[in-house]
Protein backbone atom coordinates (compact mmCIF):
# COMPACT_ATOMS: atom_id res chain seq x y z
CA UNK A 1 0.00 0.00 0.00
CA UNK A 2 2.75 2.44 0.89
CA UNK A 3 4.54 1.36 -2.30
CA UNK A 4 1.52 2.47 -4.36
CA UNK A 5 1.46 5.85 -2.61
CA UNK A 6 5.15 6.31 -3.41
CA UNK A 7 4.50 5.61 -7.09
CA UNK A 8 1.60 8.12 -7.17
CA UNK A 9 3.77 10.79 -5.49
CA UNK A 10 6.56 10.19 -7.99
CA UNK A 11 4.14 10.45 -10.94
CA UNK A 12 2.70 13.71 -9.56
CA UNK A 13 6.18 15.24 -9.23
CA UNK A 14 7.10 14.19 -12.77
CA UNK A 15 3.89 15.65 -14.27
CA UNK A 16 4.44 18.87 -12.32
CA UNK A 17 8.01 19.18 -13.54
CA UNK A 18 6.90 18.70 -17.15
CA UNK A 19 4.27 21.46 -16.75
CA UNK A 20 6.81 23.83 -15.16
CA UNK A 21 9.23 23.16 -18.02
CA UNK A 22 6.52 24.09 -20.55
CA UNK A 23 5.92 27.27 -18.55
CA UNK A 24 9.60 28.22 -18.54
CA UNK A 25 9.82 27.75 -22.31
CA UNK A 26 6.68 29.84 -22.88
CA UNK A 27 7.90 32.65 -20.64
CA UNK A 28 11.26 32.91 -22.39
CA UNK A 29 9.51 32.92 -25.80
CA UNK A 30 7.05 35.56 -24.63
CA UNK A 31 9.82 37.77 -23.25
CA UNK A 32 11.74 37.64 -26.53
CA UNK A 33 8.53 38.36 -28.44
CA UNK A 34 7.71 41.28 -26.17
CA UNK A 35 11.08 42.77 -27.08
CA UNK A 36 11.06 42.09 -30.81
CA UNK A 37 7.47 42.77 -31.91
CA UNK A 38 6.88 46.15 -33.54
CA UNK A 39 3.82 47.76 -31.91
CA UNK A 40 1.29 47.37 -29.10
CA UNK A 41 -1.38 45.33 -30.86
CA UNK A 42 1.19 42.80 -32.02
CA UNK A 43 2.73 42.63 -28.55
CA UNK A 44 -0.66 41.53 -27.15
CA UNK A 45 0.02 38.16 -28.76
CA UNK A 46 3.26 37.75 -26.79
CA UNK A 47 1.50 38.90 -23.63
CA UNK A 48 -1.09 36.15 -24.03
CA UNK A 49 1.65 33.52 -24.26
CA UNK A 50 3.34 35.03 -21.22
CA UNK A 51 0.24 35.07 -19.05
CA UNK A 52 -1.44 31.75 -19.91
CA UNK A 53 1.51 29.63 -21.01
CA UNK A 54 3.95 31.22 -18.59
CA UNK A 55 1.53 31.83 -15.71
CA UNK A 56 -1.36 29.38 -15.58
CA UNK A 57 0.43 26.17 -16.64
CA UNK A 58 3.45 26.39 -14.27
CA UNK A 59 1.22 27.30 -11.29
CA UNK A 60 -0.72 24.06 -11.86
CA UNK A 61 2.67 22.32 -12.14
CA UNK A 62 3.87 23.87 -8.88
CA UNK A 63 0.66 22.71 -7.18
CA UNK A 64 1.27 19.14 -8.38
CA UNK A 65 4.92 19.27 -7.22
CA UNK A 66 3.77 20.47 -3.78
CA UNK A 67 1.19 17.69 -3.62
CA UNK A 68 3.67 15.00 -4.57
CA UNK A 69 6.57 16.00 -2.32
CA UNK A 70 6.50 14.59 1.21
CA UNK A 71 8.86 17.07 2.89
CA UNK A 72 6.18 19.77 3.12
CA UNK A 73 4.04 20.03 6.24
CA UNK A 74 0.81 21.50 4.84
CA UNK A 75 0.84 20.15 1.32
CA UNK A 76 -2.92 20.21 0.84
CA UNK A 77 -2.95 23.91 1.72
CA UNK A 78 -0.22 24.51 -0.88
CA UNK A 79 -2.19 22.54 -3.47
CA UNK A 80 -5.55 24.23 -2.85
CA UNK A 81 -4.32 27.79 -2.76
CA UNK A 82 -2.14 27.35 -5.84
CA UNK A 83 -5.05 25.87 -7.82
CA UNK A 84 -7.24 28.81 -6.76
CA UNK A 85 -4.49 31.20 -7.86
CA UNK A 86 -4.23 29.45 -11.22
CA UNK A 87 -7.94 29.80 -11.88
CA UNK A 88 -7.90 33.47 -10.85
CA UNK A 89 -5.03 34.04 -13.32
CA UNK A 90 -6.93 32.21 -16.06
CA UNK A 91 -10.03 34.37 -15.54
CA UNK A 92 -8.29 37.69 -14.96
CA UNK A 93 -5.54 37.94 -17.56
CA UNK A 94 -7.71 37.80 -20.74
CA UNK A 95 -10.23 40.21 -19.22
CA UNK A 96 -7.53 42.70 -18.27
CA UNK A 97 -5.70 42.57 -21.59
CA UNK A 98 -8.96 42.94 -23.55
CA UNK A 99 -9.93 45.99 -21.51
CA UNK A 100 -6.48 47.50 -22.03
CA UNK A 101 -6.55 46.82 -25.78
CA UNK A 102 -10.00 48.35 -26.21
CA UNK A 103 -9.04 51.45 -24.25
CA UNK A 104 -5.84 51.82 -26.26
CA UNK A 105 -7.79 51.55 -29.51
CA UNK A 106 -10.35 54.13 -28.45
CA UNK A 107 -7.75 56.56 -27.15
CA UNK A 108 -5.67 56.18 -30.36
CA UNK A 109 -2.46 55.84 -28.36
CA UNK A 110 -0.79 53.15 -30.49
CA UNK A 111 -1.08 52.75 -34.28
CA UNK A 112 -3.18 49.85 -35.61
CA UNK A 113 -0.59 48.79 -38.10
CA UNK A 114 -1.13 45.35 -39.72
CA UNK A 115 -4.77 46.10 -40.49
CA UNK A 116 -7.23 44.46 -42.90
CA UNK A 117 -10.55 45.67 -41.51
CA UNK A 118 -11.24 47.60 -38.31
CA UNK A 119 -14.80 47.03 -37.08
CA UNK A 120 -14.29 48.94 -33.83
CA UNK A 121 -13.36 52.07 -35.73
CA UNK A 122 -16.33 51.69 -38.11
CA UNK A 123 -18.73 51.34 -35.18
CA UNK A 124 -17.24 54.40 -33.54
CA UNK A 125 -17.66 56.44 -36.74
CA UNK A 126 -21.31 55.34 -37.01
CA UNK A 127 -21.96 56.40 -33.42
CA UNK A 128 -20.40 59.79 -33.96
CA UNK A 129 -22.47 60.33 -37.13
CA UNK A 130 -25.72 59.62 -35.27
CA UNK A 131 -25.15 62.09 -32.46
Amino acid sequence: MSNLIDIVDWALVIIGEVLVSIGVFCSIVAAIGMLRFPNFFVRLHAATIGSIGGGFVPIIGAALIALGSDFLDYKWLFFGSLVITAFIVMLVSPAGSHALARATHRAKVAPVEPKVTDHLEEDKNKESEKT
Binding site: G23, A31, F40, G54, G55, P58, I59, V89, L100
Partner: peptide, 17 residues
Protein backbone atom coordinates in the same frame (compact mmCIF):
# COMPACT_ATOMS: atom_id res chain seq x y z
CA UNK B 1 1.83 53.66 -21.48
CA UNK B 2 -0.05 50.60 -22.77
CA UNK B 3 3.18 48.74 -23.54
CA UNK B 4 4.46 49.42 -20.04
CA UNK B 5 1.27 48.16 -18.42
CA UNK B 6 1.17 45.06 -20.62
CA UNK B 7 4.77 44.20 -19.74
CA UNK B 8 4.10 44.79 -16.04
CA UNK B 9 1.15 42.38 -16.32
CA UNK B 10 3.42 39.65 -17.63
CA UNK B 11 6.05 40.43 -14.99
CA UNK B 12 3.52 40.08 -12.19
CA UNK B 13 2.17 36.78 -13.53
CA UNK B 14 5.71 35.47 -13.63
CA UNK B 15 6.30 36.82 -10.13
CA UNK B 16 3.38 34.67 -8.98
CA UNK B 17 5.06 31.54 -10.36
Amino acid sequence: ISDTVLAIDCVSFETIV
